[in-house]
Every structure is written in C-alpha cells, then in structure tokens.
Design a protein around this nucleic acid. Structure first.
Lengths: 311, 311
DNA sequence: TTCTGACATAGATCAAAACCTATTAAAAAC
DNA sequence: GTTTTTAATAGGTTTTGATCTATGTCAGAA
C-alpha cells in the first residue's frame, strides 16, 4: 500500500527527477542541460534541491567527471522506472483518447439482444482494437447495474424512472401481427381486429413485457383472441410462425431477418403496429469515451433503419 | 529509454499524484482530504490540475459517489506503482544512510593484504549487512582504479602523487631486524649494525619495495650484510625465521602474529626500526558512505595498534 | 419538500519552483 | 602557466503550486 508517503515524494518534484535522469544518463550536467534546453546552473540547482530532499549526495564530482553515488544509483533505477511508467500510462491513455485500446461496456435488456449484437459486430469490424463487453439482463438487473455505475451505457425497453440518468428514445420497437407468408391472411389489406377472430394465436408467456402490453390493447378494443399455443421465448414463437402454426403478435425487429427474407409477413391490421421503443441511457455525470459515443452513434443509425419497418 | 518526456511528467506534480492516489483509494474526495489533512476544495483543485495535465477526466461523479474513469484507472495503476517505488527507494537509501545494506569497495596494494583483511573481518562482524569488496593490486593497477573512481577508498605504500586525491598517513609500517626467539642475539639490548656483521641474512628478492628501501639505509651506514639466502615473498622469509635460519629485515606488521606469540623477536638495533607508512587515499570530491567511514575508522585504530610495535 | 452529503467554483494568499544571467572555483589539458 | 572544461554560487524574476475560507450546485435521503 502506498499509505506511507515518502520524503522524496514530499519534497522532490517530477521535474527534478526528469533532470536527474538526464544527468545520470549523460554523465554530465552540461550535456543534460543542453538536452533539456536549460542552462547549466538550472540543472545544478535542481540537483541540489533533489539532494536536499533525499538528504544525501546523489552525484560526486571526481576530476571533470560526475558519478552517481550509491544513493544516486538507487534513485536512478527508481526514476527510470517512474518516468518510463508515466510514458507508458500516457500512451495507453492516448490510445483510449483516440479510440484504440479502449473498452466499452454496456448492458441491454434481453429483448434487445436480437439487434444489438449485429451493431456491435459492425462496430468491432471498424475498430478492431476496442474491446466491447455486453451484458444481458432483465430490467431489475439493469437498474442495479446502473446504480452501481457498472457500464458505460444501457439499452432498455422503458425509460428508467427514479434513477438519475440521461435517457433517449433511440429506436422504434413496433409490435405487430405476424404470419407465415403462406398463411391465408398474408398480404390482405385493411384488416381489422375482428378479421382475426378465430385465428390460432401464438403468444408469449404471461409476464412477458410484450404480452402484457398487447393484452391492454386487445382489452381496449374488446378483442379476445383464441390462443392456441403459449410459447416461452421469442425464438419459439419464431419457429412456430415459420411452420405456419398461426398468427402471433411480436416485436417486429426481432423477426426482421425472416420478414426481409419473405418467409414471414406483417399483417396490415388497423391500429397496428403498436409502437414501443428502445431507450438508451447512461448515468448523469458519466463521461463517455469516444469509443462509446461511436458505438451509440451506430446503434442510433441501426435504430433509424429499424424504424423504417414501422410504417 | 526515458528520452521521451511525457505530458504527465511535464505538467503534473508528485503532490497531485499523491492526492489522486488517496482519492482513488478512498473513492471520495472528502475522505482523501481528511486523510491528507487537507480541505476538500484543495483536493478538488489538485484533481482538476491533474485532469488538465492528462487532458481527460479521471473521475466521474455518479450520484454522490465518485468513480475512476477508464483513463483514471490506468493512471491509478501507474501512480500506485510510482509511489510504492519511491517509498522503496527511500527505504533502500535510508538503509545505506544508517549502515545496513550499503557496500564498501576498496583496493589495497599487495603488501597491505597482511593486515587489512583482519580489519574487514572485524568490521563485517559488527555490520553483517554491509557488503565489503576488497581488490588487491600493484601500485599501477591502483592508480588506474583511482582515476576511474572504481572504489570508495584505497590503501597504498606511498602517498599518491599527481592524482587529485585526499591522502592520509594512517599507520606505521616499521621495518626492523627480526630473529627467532632462540637466536643468540634475541633479547640483546643496544645493538648496532656492526654487531650484525657476519650474521646470516634472509632477504627479500631484489625489486621488493622493502629491500630497496633497506639497502639505501645500509649503504648510508656503510653496512654490508652477509646475505645467506634470498627468499621470494614474505611468507618464505617468515618460515625461514621460524626455523631459525638467520636474521631478516622485514615489515614488522606482517610478522605480528609470530612476534606476539613469542616465536620471533625484534632486535633492538640502533636506528631501527626504520619507519615506512601506509597511506589511505580517496579522490577529492568523493562522498564516503557511513559504512566506508566506519571501516576507515577501524583501519586507523588497527593502524595505531600496529604502531605500538614501532617503539 | 426540505435537509444533507459531496463535489465544484471563486477569490485570495503565500511559498516554492523553475528559470535566467553573471561570476567564481577547480581540475585537466595544452 | 595559461586555457579550457565543467560545475557551483549568487542574485533576481516570474510563474505556478498549494492551500485556505466562503459559497454554490446538485442528487439522494428523510
């Protein structure tokens, strides 16, 4: 532990150590002065001060040569190490200033894991020297991590409240009716909820954020779907749809690939898609690294791209 | 190489690093201020300056907690290392200030090797943590080492001239007639050179410093000894004397043990012993360590002890 | 809402660091 | 013995470091 503060640290200065290093390196006060663009008396003075701090001579002059004393030699080894480590630290910091070598930590709610990794991948191709660490968790876990300042930023499905964070809606998360392309309703225009009566429904388990949200909408419209299957997890819904087992209400971005490929289609139902959003958040006072900012930028771009599908 | 001087070293101060370390350690400006007996604004100011030196924030405040930024974390690791290494250097230097851990290097002319090691041994018993390194060499070699400032100090048979050294006559090196205790002259008082005529002489080889010195004395007195044996080296002379093979002229200190034990005796010849000396020398400007000074002190004591036998 | 804890800012003082120029001192080289 | 090289000393200026008190701000806790 560096609890004990040394006399040296108390009374010496970094400048003195630099000058000392130069002298020891050149074995000459005058040469060191030249190298540092100083006058010779200046370096003499610095050495004198440093010697006083150490309470021992650090150089001895024999003839017209200077030599390190024993104490000087000990100090020299130390000082070389110190100056080198400062240079190294500075290099590392410069690297994170200018991108390379930095790391970005983010946590996302589980529903975001369908599109964030793709963006991270893109980011890492552009900046291979940046380390990205993504955590996935439920809302509770995210809130806890935010409070502990564990990550650089977060992606959530609802704007966090009560926490002191900057948050920003950055992508639309449209929820819509999806069917297999071969489904009999596929492609039909101007459907209303009533046209869906009697359809087999594939629904997420109770407790899913999406399901509770959708149920509110249905209730408002007085619509009661005939639920054929309750499937846990988004992936199960997706597989059900691909096998044309029925209609589902789902977050469209998570099915984007299949929709783009034409295997699944979004039904044109009045009042849908219902719009939810993704929120990007970070604690107030957080100083984001350039790398983080760049990744956020890419996420927003992807967010905009996704939003095209909401129209 | 620490040729490149870092921005940090240019603009930061050791004090700032200390304060920074304390804050990072306590995760609090206020706590750090207390620990360092400073006010909170003071440490805030130090951090601000340090941040400016680094050109990056090093702390971020989230709620009522402070956290290191990424740059801060890099800096923290470095700073811990720096402060620790300063403490360690200081400890090492303190050890040589107060004896332990130091080293003493000396070079002696070969004729001194009969009594110096004994003193070194005594010194090392008193200060077991000091390293002593003794080189033995002829005069030419010693002069070369002096010029290169290779050792802390030197022991020679003549005061070095032409070199810029402090030198001090520190022990007498009496040259006298020695015989076996059973020799017929042993114990006789008030002898003169003429009483030695006809005695068998054991002499060092030509070229020995002692022999040439003695021959000058003999010549001055018009004395011409009957040399029975010429023996190379001090040890050969000693063995010859122990076997009572004759009279010898020798450096008494080198035979001290046998004389004290009573096996050999010094003859009481008028004008003898002739006095030579040992000289202790070190370059002007040399800063001697405490350990060196202590060893020199012991050497002088031994020198005085030896000198008792010159009376 | 108000209170409290924690850092930031402002303004000021004092000490010291970091330089310089000019001169002195000492040893080595010529 | 004079010159040259190299460091020390003296004396002075300017900058900046280090620190204080008093006050402001802001988020979390009560």
């Amino acid at each position: 532990m560096s609890e004990k503060i040394s006399q040296i640290a108390r009374h010496a200065t970094l400048r003195q150590l630099q000058v000392f290093e130069a002298i020891a390196h050149h074995n000459s006060f005058t040469k060191a002065a030249e190298a540092l663009h100083l006058t010779q008396p200046t370096v003499s003075m610095q050495v004198k001060k440093l010697s006083e701090a150490i309470e021992m001579p650090i150089f001895e002059q024999i003839g017209r040569q200077v030599y390190l004393t024993e104490a000087g030699e000990i100090l020299y080894e130390t000082v070389k190490g110190i100056l080198d480590s400062l240079v190294e630290a500075e290099e590392r910091i410069n690297r994170i200033k200018g991108f390379a070598g930095g790391r970005v930590k983010l946590s996302v709610v589980s529903t975001a894991q369908y599109f964030v990794p793709k963006v991270i991948h893109e980011f890492m191709e552009q900046h291979p020297e940046v380390n990205v660490a993504m955590q996935v968790g439920n809302k509770e876990r995210l809130v806890s991590r935010i409070q502990q300042n564990k990550d650089d930023f977060y992606i959530l499905g609802v704007p966090p409240e009560g926490l002191n964070v900057e948050s920003e809606r950055f992508a639309e998360n449209p929820i819509g009716f999806v069917v297999n392309a071969r489904h009999r309703l596929a492609g039909k225009k101007g459907l209303s909820l009533h046209d869906l009566k009697g359809e087999s429904f594939l629904m997420r388990e109770k407790g899913s954020g999406i399901r509770s949200h959708i149920e509110q909408v249905f209730q408002r419209e007085g619509f009661e779907p005939e639920v054929k299957m309750v499937l846990g997890g988004n992936e199960a819904i997706r597989l059900g749809l691909l096998q044309n087992l029925g209609v589902s209400v789902a977050s469209l971005p998570t099915l984007l690939d299949d929709i783009e490929r034409g295997d699944l289609v979004v039904l044109d139902v009045e009042g849908f898609p219902v719009m939810r959003h993704w929120y990007l958040a970070y604690p107030k006072g957080k100083s984001l690294s350039i790398a983080s900012e760049r990744l956020i930028e890419l996420l927003k771009l992807e967010g905009e791209r996704l939003s095209l599908y909401s129209i």
